[in-house]
C-alpha cells in the first residue's frame, strides 16, 4: 500500500515534469502570457517564431508527448490584424495550452508547420480557405474545398468580418 502510493507520487512528479518541459520551451518564445477559460495557459509569440517553436518541440520532447489539436484563426478587424491560436495538448495528462500569434491583415502570410507537425494539415487548409491566411510552404493549400465554387469565384473569404454576400 505504502509502496503503491509512493509509486503514484513518483508518477505524478514525472507528469508534472513533462508539462513543465513543454511549457519551458514555449515560455522562451513568449512575449506575453495570459489564460483562456477554463484554465488554458496562453502564450503570445511572434509570428516568425511559430515554426521554430514547433521544430524545437518536436526535437526536444518528440511526437509522443504532445499533439496539435487545432488552429483557430480569427479576424480582428478593429485591430487590423488576424489572430492565430495553435491549441497544443500535452500528453499524457492532456493539458491544453494555447500559442497565439498575430499577423497583419493586409499581408496575411505565415510559415507553414505542416512538414513539422503533420496534424496541422487539416487546420491550415481550412484556415486558408475561410480566412485567406497563406501558410507558406504548405503544398496542399487550395481554395474551394470548404466553400462553394461561387464564393471562390467572387474571391471572398467567408469568415472575414467584411466578407460580403455570404
Amino acid at each position: 500500500m505504502a509502496l503503491s502510493s509512493f509509486l503514484n507520487l513518483l508518477r505524478r512528479v514525472r507528469l508534472v515534469e513533462s508539462v513543465n518541459d513543454v511549457i519551458k520551451i514555449v515560455e522562451r518564445y513568449a512575449v506575453e502570457k495570459g489564460s483562456i477559460k477554463p484554465d488554458r495557459m496562453l502564450f503570445v509569440v511572434k509570428p516568425e517564431s511559430v515554426r521554430k517553436l514547433f521544430e524545437e518541440l518536436v526535437d526536444k520532447v518528440g511526437y509522443e508527448r504532445f499533439y496539435l489539436s487545432t488552429v483557430v484563426g480569427s479576424d480582428m478587424k478593429e485591430e487590423n490584424r488576424f489572430r492565430l491560436d495553435y491549441y497544443v495538448v500535452i500528453l499524457p495528462e492532456e493539458r491544453t495550452i494555447v500559442i497565439r500569434t498575430y499577423i497583419p491583415r493586409d499581408q496575411p502570410v505565415i510559415d507553414s508547420i505542416v512538414d513539422v507537425v503533420p496534424a496541422a494539415l487539416s487546420a491550415e487548409n481550412e484556415t486558408y480557405d475561410l480566412l485567406g491566411i497563406v501558410f507558406k510552404g504548405n503544398p496542399a493549400l487550395r481554395r474551394g474545398f470548404f466553400v462553394s465554387s461561387d464564393v471562390v469565384d467572387k474571391g471572398v473569404y467567408p469568415l472575414r468580418k467584411d466578407a460580403a454576400g455570404v
Partner: peptide, 28 residues
C-alpha cells in the same frame, strides 16, 4: 503506430486503439 497517430493528430477510439491514453472525459 502510436507515433504516427500522435504526429497526425488522430483522436478518439482511433488513437486509443493505438495505445494512446487520451480521453478528455478523464482529463478535463
Amino acid at each position: 503506430k502510436r507515433r504516427d497517430a500522435l504526429a497526425h493528430g488522430l483522436l478518439g477510439p482511433v488513437a486509443r486503439a493505438s495505445g494512446i491514453r487520451i480521453d478528455s472525459r478523464a482529463s478535463d
